[in-house]
Design a protein around this nucleic acid. Structure first.
Lengths: 166, 166
DNA sequence: GTTATTGCAAATGATTTGCACAAGG
DNA sequence: CCTTGTGCAAATCATTTGCAATAAC
């Protein structure tokens, strides 16, 4: 996937008269090395851990750049900070389900949903530009068996669990 | 509508061992005097204008309280601050369309959408707790006729137009 | 050589919090 | 009275910005 990202970014950068820099390369490489969602701070830590640390200012500026270039999309997981999603190139119209128990984020696509939203939008006299659906839900397994595999995993990994308010 | 709100709030307050105060009354009255969405700051100004000013601290604390009591719902219009929606009592499962040209927010309900989302959620092994769809779209009128009535109105009223970044 | 980019530190802006005082029940 | 609520000012937290130094092209 990185080659396509590289190309798109280069094109975008050239078209805008901007420059390719070591920092931007490092940030792009780190982001697209996986499909994981991340916050600015999480990415900053990852970069730091990989010996590719940059200033937060540069990181935020690059994240805006990548968003503008449509390589990244800002999503709202309802926790008061921006989460970035690197998977919209692969799956242009996916949405997110957030488990209220463990905070796990699941991506899903559904063509009916897309069509329906478009109908609704036209009926209202508009043309859809972008749509984002977030479903908050609880895991059947936790409800019926009393335990959620993701919850356990999340606790082990010390991940951020849901519950807004920074 | 205020009577139902009053009753629900009183019940909630009593159940939690909390107290009814002049400030809370003023805030609730101001909120439910209309169906308008608002940010904390906008409401603070409205209260101040009505000679019912409170401290921002109290306002934020009361907004949390009302949200917890399900009289209010926090929604994300993508502009970096929390918007509050007082219309979920009347229309429990509505969603929002935001005009990218003028920033106007339109509420809509669609039962098919609700059903579809529920199906999707179950298929993924979850039970939906809450879902929020935000459609960003542009107005047919602006696109075809070159002018958007809401845009004009918004400019006249000096309303906040879309364009994130606080 | 220009002009964009970086890093630092200071600024922002929304929201939260500690605390002493005021006020419901 | 006893405890919750309020206002103030200070604190947070994520994010942005001004500016001098640095590095692309």
């Amino acid at each position: 996937m990185t080659p396509e990202v590289r190309e798109r970014l280069d094109t975008f950068i050239k078209a805008k008269g901007l420059r390719r820099t070591a920092q931007r390369d490092a940030i792009v490489d780190e982001i697209f090395a996986s499909e994981e969602h991340f916050t600015a701070d999480e990415l900053w830590e990852r970069l730091r851990g990989a010996g590719q640390g940059t200033s937060r200012a540069t990181l935020y500026r690059t994240l805006s750049l990548l968003t503008e270039a449509n390589l990244l999309q800002e999503i709202d997981l309802g926790d008061g900070q921006t989460t970035y999603d690197p998977n919209f190139l692969d799956r242009p119209s996916h949405n997110h389900l957030v488990c209220v128990d463990c905070g796990k984020v699941i991506e899903f696509e559904d063509e009916h949903l897309e069509v329906l939203n478009d109908c609704i939008t036209r009926r209202l006299g508009f043309r859809a530009v972008k749509q984002s659906l977030r479903i908050e839900a609880c895991c059947d397994e936790l409800r019926t068996k009393g335990r959620c595999p993701n919850l356990i995993e999340a606790r082990l990994q010390g991940k951020r669990l849901p519950g807004k308010k920074r």
